[in-house]
Design a protein around this nucleic acid. Structure first.
Lengths: 200, 200
DNA sequence: CCAAAAACATACCTCTTAGTATCTTTTAAA
DNA sequence: TTTAAAAGATACTAAGAGGTATGTTTTTGG
């Protein structure tokens, strides 16, 4: 195998396993040893590709976590079509179709935010960037909806965007505490009502 | 000093310091050693009063964290007066008057939820109880508001309650990422609009 | 005042942690 | 095909983790 490819591959393997373990057990409690055991590689390989655990954490955030949020929550917002309907499908339908695994472990980004968000500026920056991108996409969509008269024009798009994100991240944490979907269904009802209220 | 008093006092000291350190640095990264160093007591004292760190964690949640949520977010909901206005003062005014320290470190409950909420059933139960109490108080208040015709009767009180809690907990996490209040102000605008929308 | 129990201190044990030093193996380029 | 560099493996260190064993001090009740 080519050296570039090989290097990139093992880095990716470490990244993938790290993401999964961080997601399931948290960043702090997942040791480099555990990660490398999962990859079937050794510590030597790890410290050859990553400077330290912090660098790995940042890589997981800005590559894996960011990618995930983009795919699930940001990119869909740039579709054409009824703005309000896009909000509905992105926020409502997506949540409904989540596997139990995802419900039980919450939002990867939110987990990072609440575990290391007040610990290191570097983590803050990486996570903030995702939130800002998400917010910007929402604002663009809502603004469009207001222009096209599907969303009420009197409301601040920025305020709606932040409120939507907050509630979404909040419920993904709270849901972890339960083993049924009741609380999620109640959130979905709440969001549903909210979207109706911002309708033009 | 009486033995009962002394015992209760040191337990309280340990509990207080633990809460602070958990709040500032997280549950997992705060060791028993660090806690006892902060109390100026020793490990022997700790393990005399607490079985293990898990028991301490549960005590902090069900005593300190719960107490805090009750004082700030639940008890105020049982006041008499305009239901919608009570929601406003509890959710809006309280957040506005938060010290920087509280903004930077997020919500103690939310931190616990996202750090250990999917790790141990015992933690889940303790945290769930707080959420359920909060939800119940909100539902009672909203139901009253609907009866008294200050809150729109067509809306599900359960859905509103869960949506309010979700957004609140969500923003308290997200705010940690920033060093200004902009995002908080945007949330406040969003919540403000939301409360206007549920008005009768 | 004295013995027993509770409260607390000291010293330790074992395991895990992040990280380093040094080795072997694989790839690249001449 | 040889040599240098990159990739990876092995073995280690020092610090910190949770927890225990056993000591000393303080309180209590007779």
């Amino acid at each position: 195998m080519l050296q570039n490819e090989k290097s990139e591959l093992t880095k990716q393997i470490i990244l993938d396993k790290s993401f999964t373990l961080f997601y399931e057990n948290g960043f702090k409690t997942t040791s480099v040893d555990k990660i490398m055991k999962a990859t079937k590689l050794t510590k030597g390989a790890f410290y050859h590709h990553y400077k330290n655990k912090k660098e790995l954490g940042l890589a997981v955030i800005s590559l894996k976590v960011q990618q995930r949020v983009y795919k699930g929550m940001i990119t869909p917002l740039y579709q054409s079509g009824n703005a309000l309907q896009i909000l509905e499908t992105t926020f409502l339908d997506r949540l409904k179709s989540f596997p139990v695994y995802d419900k039980q472990h919450g939002c990867p980004m939110n987990n990072f935010i609440n575990e290391v968000g007040d610990l290191e500026v570097a983590y803050q920056l990486a996570l903030r960037r995702i939130i800002e991108d998400w917010k910007a996409a929402l604002i663009t969509l809502i603004d469009r909806g207001q222009k096209e008269n599907t969303i009420s024009k009197t409301l601040s798009s920025k305020a709606i965007a932040v409120y939507l994100i907050s509630a979404f991240e909040g419920i993904r944490g709270i849901r972890k505490l339960y083993d049924t979907d009741d609380i999620l269904d109640q959130y979905i009802d709440g969001l549903s009502l909210y979207l109706k209220q911002i309708k033009a």
